[in-house]
Design a protein around this nucleic acid. Sequence first.
DNA 1: CGGAATCCTATCGGATACTG
DNA 2: CAGTATCCGATAGGATTCCG
Lengths: 148, 148
Amino acid sequence: MAHQTETHDDWDDALVPEERGRTSRPEPAYPVEVALAAVAGRWTTLVLRKLMHGPHSFGSLRERLPEISAKVPTERLRVLERRGLVAHDRLAGFPVRTRYQLTPAGAALRPLLIELYRTGAALTAADAGGPPARTQAALSGRSGSPGK
Amino acid sequence: MAHQTETHDDWDDALVPEERGRTSRPEPAYPVEVALAAVAGRWTTLVLRKLMHGPHSFGSLRERLPEISAKVPTERLRVLERRGLVAHDRLAGFPVRTRYQLTPAGAALRPLLIELYRTGAALTAADAGGPPARTQAALSGRSGSPGK
DNA sequence: CGGAATCCTATCGGATACTG
DNA sequence: CAGTATCCGATAGGATTCCG
């Protein structure tokens, strides 16, 4: 394997397929950060999951998530809206009813939620199945030049 | 479609394939939360990405992530270790050198990182391509019984 | 070189109370 | 019913300093 003069920042094409992914800091435009920002925050994935089933009203969401406080769904929904992941409309008439639903962009988060579940389940299984994975013994003790 | 007496919490099998996924709060054992916890925190995904390429020393990591402060990588690495995602061994001898590398469990995060990038890139593209997605106009005005 | 300890600040999450 | 406004405690992140 050829190593260059200095940097061997070998960018993995699977992890960083584009040029804009080659950042050395967590800038907001970095795609991974964008996706994380979309699902970040307590209750966010649960709200999204509910909305994946279809539209929900404000109270309807709170019913399904009983332990959520008053402010949180408001905050979450507002952020999700600002990001274009959720939209709402008001069904006027009686006691005002608002309907929240995912936009196409929001619906696009579905594969990510599935992958999050899958990964988390796998990690949990690994926890129970095997030991803490102290791979120390598997490490080779090469003490060559530090490289840089 | 059969609806039961009260709850029509139709659980999407893709989103919630198992019984333990049927939670109404963000409990730590909920797989999605497990996965999110693994990649949560500033710089975490970047650290993981570096380690995906292979082992790194403490200083090596800081070199690659210049703007990271001293405490953060320590904290991140410790947390990742506690979760069994990273392991380290010390290459004794001269100025002590420590080698961090992913455990098999840590390497299992790779698909998630890829999916995060993919999703984030898609969201960004949607941002640039289309308007803020005020789908209000696209919402159908069904004013039937709220269901519950 | 590789950390641990300490301090400080910004932000988040939650509870409560009030408004449209 | 559907929010908004305010307060507050907990925590995360960053800088700095010191120790193995």
